[in-house]
Each structure stands twice: as C-alpha cells, then as structure tokens.
C-alpha cells in the first residue's frame, strides 16, 4: 500500500522534473527558462521527497520518524530558498540588461 503510494508520488514528481528539464532546454530566452526552472522544481521535489519520506516509514520507529521529518524539513527549505534563488537570478539578468524575448523580436528598452 505504502509502496504503491511511494511509486505514484515519485513517478509523478519525476515526470514534472522531466518536463521542466525539457522546458529549460526548449524555452526561447532565459526569463522563460526561469519559469520552467523555478516552478516545476518545487512541486516535483515536494512530491519526490514526500514519497521518499513515506517509504522511509516502512519500519516504523521514533528515529525513522525523525528522519522522515528531516526530509520534510528539506522540503521546507527548498520552498523558502527556491523562489528566492529564482528571483535572484532573474534580478541579475535584468540588472545586466538582458532583453526579454518577445514575439515581434522588439528591442525596445524595457528599463528606461
């Protein structure tokens, strides 16, 4: 039962990872790539780590419970850190004057 749940969670997470990686490779400019990188990773790591934490509870004991809690702590830190890192990278790009890709290939200065 727990095994099935673990497998489903991990495979779903893996699928999201896969899709975001494809997105990182395919999107036209780095702003759009950050959309793939910043969003997909969070949910995917949440799903995978939850699956792994569940599997870890197979042989239940207090120490295993604490290890699972630690894994969930990792999720919490990723939740705090990942959007911040995304934002930091985007800010760096904006600061160094990368123009976002647009349909008409306009090159107007977005920053005045």
């Amino acid at each position: 039962m727990i095994d099935m749940l673990t497998i489903i969670l991990i495979l779903t997470g893996y699928f999201f990872f896969f899709a975001t990686t494809i997105g990182v490779l395919r999107f036209p400019d780095f702003y759009a790539r950050m959309h793939a990188a910043g969003k997909g990773d969070i949910l995917a790591s949440l799903l995978m780590l939850t699956g792994l934490a569940l599997y870890n509870l197979h042989h239940f004991s207090v120490n295993q419970l604490l290890v699972s809690l630690k894994i969930m702590l990792i999720v919490m830190f990723i939740f705090l850190a990942s959007p911040t890192a995304t934002h930091a990278i985007l800010d760096a790009g904006y600061e160094s004057g990368v123009h976002p890709w647009t349909k008409e290939k306009k090159t107007e200065d977005k920053r005045e």
Binding site: F77, L80, A81, T84, H87, A88, D91
Partner: peptide
C-alpha cells in the same frame, strides 16, 4: 540590497 533575498536569508541564517 534586495528586500526579498534579505528577508529570506535572515530566516535561514539561524537555522
């Protein structure tokens, strides 16, 4: 300095 980065890092440093 950046508000977001500053605020989040302030939460993370003690941990």
């Amino acid at each position: 300095q950046d508000l977001i980065i500053q605020w989040i890092c302030r939460q993370l440093v003690p941990f």
